[in-house]
Amino acid sequence: MIFLAFLVVVVLAALWVMGMYNGLVRSRNEVRNSWGQIDVQLKRRHDLIPNLVEAVKGYMGHERNTLEAVTKARQQAIQVTGDVAERAKAENVLSQTLRSLFAVAEAYPDLKANQNFLALQEELSSTENKISFARQYYNDAVMRINNKIQMFPSNILASSFNFQMEKFFEVEAAAERQAPQVKF
């Protein structure tokens, strides 16, 4: 009888540990999967930029610096193959240059009437959104696994099976976090 009770307790404990382990694996896969999502969108942005530069060139001859900045930032973003933090930094620079390109484009009415440009602008700004939503999902996933790795009792299991803390995809530089000011 005592043996039976003991057996039940052992089986229940084993099931519990198993569930916890599976939870950790699930969280880790979620992080990887959502990083893949970000990657897809970043690549899409890299692919769209040459088209944009091509479409804009004819209209914005005077803005060579802006265009070059975009092209350069794209080159650098493609070349970075480091970890999450490094890529985030390069991609943020690219976001910044794109933003200034679109701001400058506002001053060219001909360009703003160009269908091709408008379509590209929609595609690119939507890709920006997709990147930020993918990043949001990724960061949530990272927080979930990091919580599990640090919190008791899953931390014991995590450290014995060597689960690593994951890195957040950080939001831009501090200056960008500020809300724009409206001046009259």
Binding site: Q37, Q41, E122, E123, S126, N129, K130, F133, A134, Q136, Y137
Partner: peptide
């Protein structure tokens, strides 16, 4: 379409 895609990513 873009909005749907954005939200399905989120």
């Amino acid at each position: 379409f873009n909005v749907v895609e954005e939200m399905s990513i989120a």
